[in-house]
Nucleic acid binder design. Structure first.
Lengths: 135, 135
DNA sequence: TTTTAGAGTCTCAAAAAGAGACTATATGTA
DNA sequence: TACATATAGTCTCTTTTTGAGACTCTAAAA
């Protein structure tokens, strides 16, 4: 198989030996975008249904307009999000998931579900850590 | 069900109405850490087997020591990673996944697999976007 | 005696994120 | 007519994060 695999340590050793740069690692290429601060939240909303720019702004009051624009642009660039402009006055812009976005989100969703089911445990771990000498 | 659900737009509206702050959203709490720049890569390596600090450094040559330390600390704080110091001279430190880390990674892994299978499509989308007037 | 290894910390520079003002156009309201 | 509102952003400035690289400490090996 000629597909680049995930970076197991054996693979990483091989990549180094071949002088490959790790920027070409597919997982990093994809996951680093999706894990950005606001992408998960916006993806969840778009997975629910298409939304307009101003809806997203209202739904997520603590995101700046600049970050909405930028995050949506990044997601559009990677092919997950479709941006469609309706020529109303003033123009309205609707964002929705592409087929690829839906496909990706099916896999991403499992982590979200884990997070919902386990966030108390994560919180507890944080508090324990902070209360210990390490914190 | 009294569990805080994922932030559907209905839920977000409710949270706003109640004056809740969104920092308490479980998905954001959990996913934002896991999506940081280096966490996915280090988690993959630790999911494979426990590693020592210097092993990780060698396997990922383009991460600074500072970022290894910090990312591992964050993952330890959240309860995914165990740090064990052996009193050798010089001391050796081994990092491994906790049970919770293994549990979480089972869900995260699906996104990684999606990324491996679809990174060409993502790359293609990026190039198309950059070649268009939007880029 | 200088080097090497392990596991970091410290400081400073660069990149990313956030806050808030500002733009354009077209309606509705006083 | 003048003013405010709504849409979908951009621009600039400030604060946080990240990254690069030097520096620390201990003990064994060359």
């Amino acid at each position: 198989m000629d597909q680049i695999s995930s970076p197991t340590s054996a693979r990483l050793r091989a990549m180094q030996a071949e002088g490959m740069n790790l920027d070409s690692c597919p997982v990093r290429t994809v996951v680093s975008r999706l894990g950005s601060k606001w992408a998960p939240l916006l993806l969840q909303l778009l997975a629910e249904r298409p939304h307009r720019f101003s809806e997203l702004r209202r739904l997520v009051p603590d995101i700046s307009q600049r970050m909405i624009t930028q995050t949506l642009r990044d997601l559009e660039r990677d092919g997950y999000v479709n941006r469609s402009v309706l020529p109303t006055k003033p123009p309205s812009v609707t964002y929705s998931l592409t087929d690829m976005g839906v496909s990706m989100f099916e896999s991403y969703r499992l982590l979200f579900e884990w997070a919902e089911a386990n966030h108390q445990a994560v919180r507890a771990a944080r508090e324990a850590f902070d209360a210990s000498d390490k914190g």
